[in-house]
Design a protein around this nucleic acid. Structure first.
Lengths: 102, 102
DNA sequence: TTGATAGGCAAGTGATTTCTTGCCTATCCT
DNA sequence: AGGATAGGCAAGAAATCACTTGCCTATCAA
């Protein structure tokens, strides 16, 4: 249950979702690279520490995994936790009748 | 984008997720019925207005739909918005290699 | 019509969250 | 060694959020 808490809490912030988008586009980015992408591509005026904190939240949720190499820390997207989300409520009404498009 | 905001914000709260669970189990519940279920089954001490506000958030996210009948207002779960969640990040790495279970 | 039931609105409070600022450590390059 | 680069920690300000309290409206049953 605490897992679900972390996961949904992580997804609740728009900036964090944008970070996931960026990591989906290119994995293995460093903190600075993510910072500059948020700034340039998304006009998000946010400090480096702000981004760092967001990454920590994403990592706690298991959505981002990191690996250290020397002074660099690379961030990778892990979509596995996302699969459990929809299962929670989608499974019961299993058949999932496709949208009728008359 | 505002749609995603509402959706993820709605899912971020544990009480709201529990409400979705209850609606998944039995659809068409009234506010009072949901209140008593939260209280009895989940030991959640929350006021009627608290639950009402949660339902409003869920409705804004499209996760709950309502229909009025006389003085009753029935709440139904709508899982459609959930499907878009995973699509956002799950689609790119499409194949989704099934878990190796040796 | 009166009382009871189902629900709604709005202001205020307390708790979380987001974000910044300031300082610190570790690694690399010259 | 010294400077530059990548990242981390922590305290505090500001914004959001969850929740309550108090009062109000609408529907139904007697």
């Amino acid at each position: 249950m605490a897992v679900a808490d972390d996961l949904f809490r992580a997804l609740a912030d728009r900036t964090r979702r944008t970070i996931l988008d960026e990591l989906a586009e290119k994995s293995g980015q460093t903190l600075f690279e993510i910072c500059s992408r948020l700034s340039v591509k998304h006009q998000l005026g946010i400090s480096r520490q702000g981004v760092s904190q967001h990454l920590a939240v994403l990592e706690a949720a298991g959505l981002v995994e990191t690996r250290r190499e020397g002074r660099y820390k690379f961030h990778d997207l892990n979509t596995a936790p996302l699969r459990r989300i929809t299962e929670r409520w989608l499974v019961p009404d299993a058949p999932q009748p496709e949208e009728s498009t008359p």
